[in-house]
Computed example of a mutant assay.
Amino acid sequence: MTLSRTFAVTCLAATTVLFPIASSAHDFWLAPSTYRLTAPSEVPVSVLIGHPKDRLTWPVDPQRIVALRTVGPDGVRDQQSGLADYDQDEVLPIGLDAPGLHILTIETTNAFSELPATQFEDYLAEEGLTLIQLDRIHRGATDTPGTELYSRRGKALLQVGPVLPTDISRLRRPVGLTLEIIALDHPQTWVEGEILNAKVMFRGQPMSGITVGLVSTEPEIDTATHVRTDKDGTVSFAYPGSGTWMLHAVWSDRQRISDRADYNTIFSSLSFEVW
């Protein structure tokens, strides 16, 4: 029996807490060589997966990329031409042609995953996927392998020149990802003593009870703090210090009609630099 989204959100919201847990091996983020440019130019971007200290370059398969684009002061720009000659050890060349904030986004197709029961239950606990834990308990399936179709959504905030008022309005505007993390404050203006607010949207609607992690993407810094979104889908984090960071979130639904997997899971990230 599939749990309703309303019931799922109620259960998740009821367990809203602040807790530190290890960064997930499922982490996925866009990692430009720099998040700050003084003038319009091309910036190389890696696609990384795993724990930041053990991170790997994701072997980008053009067939799995649904979209690769930037949303900037010059509008929406398709960046898929950079996929043509991509190799696992190379990077994506992303062209930024105007001063201001450019939001780089990537979307992938589904892939299949199956884990033994114990590993799947550990993964659900680590990611805060309470809905799926409840569903497996309800179906008496906690001792069976877990199967899912999963896809990824990534965003990176690239700033060309100083932060302008128009950049803030662009920052807060959804770009239309299925599961999207939206920064409500510009990370490059974040200073000690202030908080950064963000919102999580699923299919255009704010989602409460989703675990959001603030994770350092620097290999030598093993720092991650996790918080659940409130009833408006928002979450706040205290200033973590300068460096490169990402916000990470996961949402999973029971597959209604599928002979291949029990769940459909989306991983989403927003990477940025804090000065």
Rank of each mutant, 00 (worst) to 15 (best):
R260C: 11
V43C: 05
L184K: 01
V200T: 01
T109P: 05
P52C: 05
R254Q: 13
G233Q: 00
T265V: 03
P62Y: 02
F19H: 15
V191M: 03
T70K: 04
A183R: 02
I221Q: 12
G209V: 02
E194N: 08
S271P: 01
Q63T: 13
T38A: 14
S252M: 15
T57D: 09
G146R: 00
D78F: 06
Y150D: 04
V9L: 07
G75K: 04
G213E: 06
D222C: 10
Y35R: 02
R5C: 09
L134Y: 12
I137C: 09
V163L: 10
R203M: 12
A13W: 04
G82F: 03
R36I: 10
G241Q: 06
D222T: 13
T225W: 11
T144Y: 11
K231C: 10
A125L: 14
L129I: 06
P59E: 07
G75R: 05
R203A: 15
H226D: 05
I21Q: 10
K53T: 08
I181L: 04
T234Y: 11
V45G: 01
S268I: 02
E194F: 02
R139L: 15
T38Q: 14
W251R: 08
V274T: 09
E192K: 14
M246F: 05
D54Y: 12
F112P: 04
T109K: 12
S242W: 10
Y263K: 09
E220F: 12
A156C: 02
G209W: 00
G243A: 05
A84N: 09
L30I: 02
L179T: 01
T211Q: 12
E107N: 09
M1L: 07
V191F: 02
P116Y: 04
P162N: 05
E220H: 13
D54S: 13
Y239H: 15
G82S: 14
E107M: 08
T34I: 10
D222L: 11
L96P: 04
G75Q: 03
V91D: 09
P187M: 01
D61E: 13
A8G: 11
F237N: 07
E114T: 09
L214H: 07
T16G: 06
R254D: 08
A249I: 03
V60I: 13
W29A: 05
A249H: 00
T34R: 13
G154F: 01
A249P: 00
